[in-house]
């Protein structure tokens, strides 16, 4: 028995239970797909399923990773001459965190901000999506503003405690 198991494992690459569990998962997905396949727009659903995956892995992730790398690259290349004699605190996180917050809100509340689905919104609520863009801009401004104040405080504190080696 043990030899059969070892040969199976060498062949397949994992315990037989691994295959059984995964086949159960694929079968369940197949069953759900079968039930939804009678829907006239089932193909559209499948396309959105794949688009969600590709949209995250090959669009959203590379975009924010690139933006973050560009930001830190840019900051590290800032001329240091002026700050050499002064204490420095990297502004990286003071830019990165409000940018992430603002981006997260844009991502989640995009329909209201760009006024997508205006007709169904009006039918459902009796209101328009008019205020959302301004509110998102205000929230974004607040986050960057608070961050700027915190940065100024950190910078002031660092100056009082004297210079430290530049990072």
């Amino acid at each position: 028995m043990r030899r059969i198991l070892a040969r199976w494992t060498a062949f397949y690459g994992a315990n037989p239970l691994h295959l059984l569990a995964l086949l159960a998962c694929l079968a369940l997905a197949g069953y759900a797909a079968l039930l939804v396949s009678s829907d006239p727009l089932a193909v559209r659903m499948l396309l959105w399923f794949l688009a969600a995956l590709i949209g995250h892995d090959l669009v959203l992730f590379p975009l924010y990773a690139l933006a973050d790398r560009s930001l830190s690259g840019l900051l590290s290349r800032l001329p240091r001459a002026r700050t050499a004699t002064r204490p420095t605190v990297s502004p990286l996180n003071y830019l990165r965190i409000p940018a992430l917050g603002s981006g997260l809100l844009l991502l989640v509340f995009l329909p209201g901000i760009v006024r997508q689905g205006a007709v169904t919104y009006l039918d459902a609520t009796g209101l328009t999506q008019e205020p959302f863009l301004a509110r998102w801009l205000l929230l974004t401004g607040t986050m960057f503003g608070v961050s700027a104040v915190l940065y100024a405080i950190r910078l002031g504190a660092a100056r009082r405690t004297g210079p430290r080696p530049a990072d």
Binding site: A24, C25, L26, L28, A29, Y31, A32, A33, L35, V36, D39, L41, A42, R44, M45, W48, F49, F109, P111, G112, Q116, G117, T120, Y121, A124, T125
Partner: peptide, 24 residues
């Protein structure tokens, strides 16, 4: 947010999509 840009019926898509996710 009442944005039906996907145009398919939300309910079956969200319901059966959930089952695909649950199994996985």
């Amino acid at each position: 947010q009442y944005d039906y840009v996907f145009r398919f019926n939300f309910y079956p898509a969200h319901y059966f999509g959930a089952w695909v996710f649950i199994g996985a």
